[in-house]
Amino acid sequence: MLDDRARMEAAKKEKVEQILAEFQLQEEDLKKVMRRMQKEMDRGLRLETHEEASVKMLPTYVRSTPEGSEVGDFLSLDLGGTNFRVMLVKVGEGEEGQWSVKTKHQMYSIPEDAMTGTAEMLFDYISECISDFLDKHQMKHKKLPLGFTFSFPVRHEDIDKGILLNWTKGFKASGAEGNNVVGLLRDAIKRRGDFEMDVVAMVNDTVATMISCYYEDHQCEVGMIVGTGCNACYMEEMQNVELVEGDEGRMCVNTEWGAFGDSGELDEFLLEYDRLVDESSANPGQQLYEKLIGGKYMGELVRLVLLRLVDENLLFHGEASEQLRTRGAFETRFVSQVESDTGDRKQIYNILSTLGLRPSTTDCDIVRRACESVSTRAAHMCSAGLAGVINRMRESRSEDVMRITVGVDGSVYKLHPSFKERFHASVRRLTPSCEITFIESEEGSGRGAALVSAVACKKACMLGQ
């Protein structure tokens, strides 16, 4: 009897593995994704193909990295998701002549009506938060230079001027797309009239992360975010950046690689679950690469896999709870928690219980395998993109072996128990001629924006502006 049951459990697990095998990517698959990513990057950089390229390769006008001589107080704003952060950054000489960066910050959550109302409502709310922060720190009387981390696709015309191309991540505030974001912020500050600010720089969160990590390690020339969304930036040779005049030196390019796949480059790798996630998203047909990796989508992918296993009578005796059938019910943090389970399955059992399920031991094991399959594919897909960037940098610099540091931020990278190990191992397999160091950014977005502002202020002083 026991043997029969054991055989049935083994057969069930084997069927589960057959279904989950769809998520496995072979090294040849990853090399294919990497080569296609490089081709799209090239198209994004070139003037004649930029418009139709899915990977936009947006110039950021960040050319210099901090040298350690900029000092002063800077205000930093960070808008990239449902939370908005205001930070005071003091850049100065530390002990023994070292450079020191001290920060104080406060988080504000953005109400739904500000995210989806008008641009005026959104930026009025942001300036209200700045006003509140300055009151708390008794700094209303000071006109501070301000660095703005704005983590949406922007076409820069200068370091302090950028046109919002399109909202992502659930934002829909009308009247912002096609307009200068810094102008919208300046107008809102003017409307309030109770404080003055000098907006000197606007950067993407990947750029802010790279600059913040450069402060720790001067070989950091790539910034990457794996959180709600997924994106990367890197220092490109100016001669390859056709959208900006000049051939000397390097400029940081914001790849906006989340949109890779929007022209069909990933079609052969998309599964039924991916198509369902895409169809029910706020932007169907867009940001397809990001939807395979980002935390906004990972939990939902797992939920759809679990429903398939229920329908195949391989999980929960073929019956799903009402909660499990509800879109968004299986949160991405559950994926991390399930994979963090120590082996007694308590954590998995508790999560499934909150979803109205009474799982068996085998159910718990199957749910864990589903989570591992989805998150491992995410790590491997992400590795193909980064390997594409790094191999490109090595080739354009004609280096036999390139040493490089990548600064990384984002909740999936930082909080998932195995993502970074799987990701690092896969990147290294795909970049055999590179020695890569990964560092995690601390308060990256805010500190990085302030350091970019410090560079901009120093330049302005040198130019006598």
Rank of each mutant, 00 (worst) to 15 (best):
Leu2Gln: 08
Asp4Ala: 04
Asp4Gly: 12
Ala6Gly: 09
Ala6Met: 15
Arg7Pro: 14
Met8Val: 14
Glu9His: 09
Ala10Asn: 13
Ala10Cys: 14
Glu14Ser: 13
Glu14Lys: 06
Glu14Gly: 14
Lys15Gly: 14
Lys15Pro: 11
Glu17Pro: 02
Glu17Val: 08
Gln18Leu: 07
Leu20Tyr: 10
Ala21Leu: 06
Glu22Gly: 04
Glu22His: 13
Gln26Gly: 10
Glu28Tyr: 05
Asp29Arg: 04
Leu30Gly: 00
Lys32Met: 06
Lys32Leu: 10
Lys32Asp: 13
Val33Arg: 00
Gln38Met: 11
Gln38Leu: 07
Gln38Phe: 05
Gln38Ala: 08
Lys39Gln: 11
Glu40Trp: 02
Arg43Gly: 04
Arg43Phe: 12
Gly44Pro: 00
Leu45Cys: 05
Leu45Val: 05
Arg46Phe: 05
Arg46Ala: 15
Arg46Asp: 08
Leu47Gly: 15
Leu47Phe: 12
His50Lys: 06
His50Glu: 11
Glu51Gly: 12
Glu51Cys: 15
Ala53Thr: 08
Ser54Cys: 13
Val55Asn: 01
Met57Pro: 02
Leu58Arg: 08
Tyr61Gly: 11
Val62Lys: 00
Ser64Ile: 04
Ser64Thr: 13
Glu67Met: 05
Glu67Phe: 10
Gly68Met: 05
Ser69Val: 12
Ser69Phe: 08
Val71Ala: 13
Gly72Lys: 05
Asp73Lys: 01
Phe74Cys: 06
Leu75Pro: 02
Ser76Leu: 04
Asp78Arg: 11
Gly81Met: 07
Asn83Ser: 06
Asn83Cys: 08
Phe84Leu: 13
Phe84Ile: 09
Phe84Cys: 12
Phe84Lys: 03
Arg85Leu: 12
Val86His: 00
Leu88Glu: 11
Val89Pro: 01
Lys90Tyr: 04
Val91Ile: 12
Val91Lys: 04
Glu95Val: 14
Glu96Asp: 13
Trp99Tyr: 06
Trp99Thr: 12
Ser100Pro: 06
Ser100Gly: 14
Val101Cys: 08
Val101His: 10
Val101Thr: 07
Thr103Cys: 13
Thr103Phe: 08
Lys104Ile: 14
Gln106Val: 14
Gln106Cys: 12
Met107Thr: 10
Met107Val: 11
Met107Gln: 14
Tyr108Ile: 09
Ser109Trp: 08
Ser109His: 09
Ile110Phe: 08
Ile110Ala: 01
Pro111Gln: 03
Pro111Thr: 15
Glu112Val: 10
Asp113Thr: 13
Ala114Tyr: 08
Met115Gly: 12
Met115Asn: 08
Thr116Leu: 07
Glu120Pro: 07
Met121Gly: 10
Leu122Gly: 09
Phe123Leu: 02
Phe123His: 01
Asp124Glu: 06
Ile126Pro: 00
Glu128Gly: 08
Asp132Tyr: 03
Lys136Ser: 08
His137Gln: 10
His137Lys: 12
Lys140Cys: 07
Lys140Met: 09
Lys140Thr: 11
His141Ala: 10
His141Glu: 04
Lys142Trp: 08
Lys143Cys: 13
Lys143Val: 07
Lys143His: 09
Gly147Cys: 04
Thr149Ala: 09
Phe150Asp: 09
Phe150Glu: 10
Ser151Tyr: 05
Pro153Ser: 04
Val154Asp: 05
Arg155Val: 11
His156Pro: 11
Glu157Asp: 14
Glu157Met: 14
Ile159Asp: 15
Gly162Phe: 12
Gly162His: 05
Leu164Thr: 11
Leu164Gly: 15
Leu165Ser: 15
Asn166Trp: 07
Thr168Asp: 15
Lys169Met: 10
Phe171Ser: 11
Lys172Cys: 14
Ala173Cys: 09
Ala173Arg: 10
Ser174Trp: 10
Gly175Thr: 10
Gly175Phe: 10
Gly175Val: 11
Glu177Ser: 08
Gly178Asp: 10
Asn179Thr: 12
Asn180Asp: 15
Asn180Lys: 10
Val181Cys: 08
Val181Trp: 15
Val182Glu: 13
Gly183Cys: 04
Ala188Cys: 07
Ile189Ala: 06
Arg191Glu: 10
Asp194Lys: 11
Asp194Pro: 07
Phe195Met: 12
Glu196Val: 09
Asp198Leu: 03
Asp198Met: 03
Met202Gly: 06
Val203Ala: 06
Val203Gln: 13
Asn204Thr: 06
Asn204Cys: 12
Ala208Met: 04
Thr209Gln: 04
Thr209Tyr: 03
Ile211His: 02
Ser212His: 14
Tyr214Asp: 03
Tyr214Met: 11
Tyr214Arg: 09
Tyr215Ser: 11
Glu216Thr: 04
Asp217Lys: 03
Gln219Asp: 12
Glu221Lys: 03
Val226Asn: 01
Val226His: 01
Gly227Tyr: 00
Thr228Pro: 13
Thr228Leu: 14
Thr228Val: 09
Gly229Pro: 04
Asn231Cys: 06
Ala232Trp: 06
Tyr234Ala: 00
Glu236Lys: 03
Glu242Pro: 06
Leu243Ile: 12
Glu245Val: 07
Gly246Met: 06
Glu248Leu: 11
Asn254Asp: 08
Asn254Leu: 08
Asn254Gln: 10
Ala259Asn: 14
Ala259Lys: 14
Ala259Gly: 12
Asp262Pro: 02
Ser263Ala: 11
Ser263Lys: 13
Ser263His: 14
Gly264Ala: 10
Glu265Phe: 09
Leu266Glu: 08
Leu266Cys: 01
Asp267Trp: 10
Glu268Met: 12
Leu271His: 01
Leu271Asn: 08
Asp274Phe: 00
Asp274Cys: 00
Asp274Thr: 03
Arg275Ala: 12
Arg275Pro: 03
Asp278Lys: 00
Glu279Gln: 13
Ser281Asn: 03
Ser281Cys: 08
Ala282Gly: 11
Asn283Ala: 10
Gln286Cys: 15
Gln287Lys: 11
Leu288Asp: 01
Leu288Val: 14
Glu290Gln: 13
Tyr297Asn: 05
Gly299Pro: 01
Leu301Val: 13
Val302His: 00
Arg303His: 02
Arg303Gly: 00
Arg303Met: 01
Val305Ala: 07
Arg308Ala: 09
Leu309Arg: 00
Asp311Cys: 08
Asp311Ser: 10
Asp311Met: 05
Glu312Ala: 15
Asn313Thr: 04
Leu315Lys: 00
Gly318Thr: 05
Ser321Thr: 14
Glu322Cys: 10
Leu324Cys: 05
Thr326Arg: 11
Arg327Ala: 14
Gly328Cys: 06
Ala329Met: 07
Ala329Gln: 01
Ala329Pro: 04
Phe330Lys: 00
Phe330Met: 10
Phe334Cys: 09
Val335Ile: 09
Val335Trp: 02
Val338His: 01
Glu339Tyr: 03
Ser340Thr: 13
Asp341Tyr: 06
Asp341Cys: 15
Thr342His: 09
Thr342Val: 11
Asp344Trp: 07
Asp344Ala: 11
Arg345Ser: 10
Lys346Thr: 07
Gln347Ile: 13
Ile348Cys: 10
Tyr349Glu: 12
Leu352Thr: 06
Leu355Thr: 02
Leu357Asn: 05
Arg358Gly: 10
Arg358Asn: 12
Arg358Gln: 13
Thr361His: 09
Thr361Arg: 11
Thr362Asp: 12
Ile366Gln: 02
Ile366Val: 12
Ala370Pro: 00
Cys371Ala: 02
Glu372Arg: 07
Glu372Asp: 09
Ser373Val: 10
Thr376Leu: 07
Thr376Ser: 11
Thr376Lys: 13
Thr376Gly: 13
Ala379Leu: 10
Ala379Ile: 07
His380Gln: 13
Met381Arg: 01
Ser383Cys: 03
Ser383His: 00
Ala384Pro: 01
Gly385Arg: 03
Ala387Ser: 09
Gly388Pro: 01
Asn391Pro: 00
Arg392Trp: 05
Ser396Asp: 03
Arg397Glu: 06
Glu399Thr: 13
Glu399Met: 10
Glu399Leu: 09
Arg403Asn: 07
Arg403Pro: 12
Arg403Glu: 10
Ile404Val: 15
Ile404Gln: 03
Val408His: 01
Val408Lys: 00
Val408Gly: 09
Val412Leu: 12
Val412His: 02
Val412Pro: 03
Lys414Glu: 03
His416Leu: 11
His416Glu: 03
Pro417Ile: 01
Ser418Asn: 05
Phe419Lys: 01
Phe419Glu: 00
Lys420Met: 05
Glu421Gly: 13
Glu421Cys: 09
Glu421Ser: 08
Glu421His: 11
His424Arg: 05
Ala425Lys: 03
Arg428Phe: 12
Arg429Cys: 15
Leu430Pro: 01
Pro432Ala: 12
Pro432Val: 07
Ser433Phe: 11
Ser433Met: 06
Cys434Ile: 03
Cys434Arg: 00
Thr437Met: 05
Ser445Pro: 15
Ser445Ala: 12
Gly446Ser: 15
Ala450Tyr: 14
Val452Ala: 10
Ser453Glu: 13
Val455Lys: 08
Ala456Leu: 06
Cys457Phe: 14
Lys458Ala: 08
Ala460Ile: 12
Cys461Lys: 14
Leu463Trp: 13
Leu463His: 06
Gly464Arg: 06
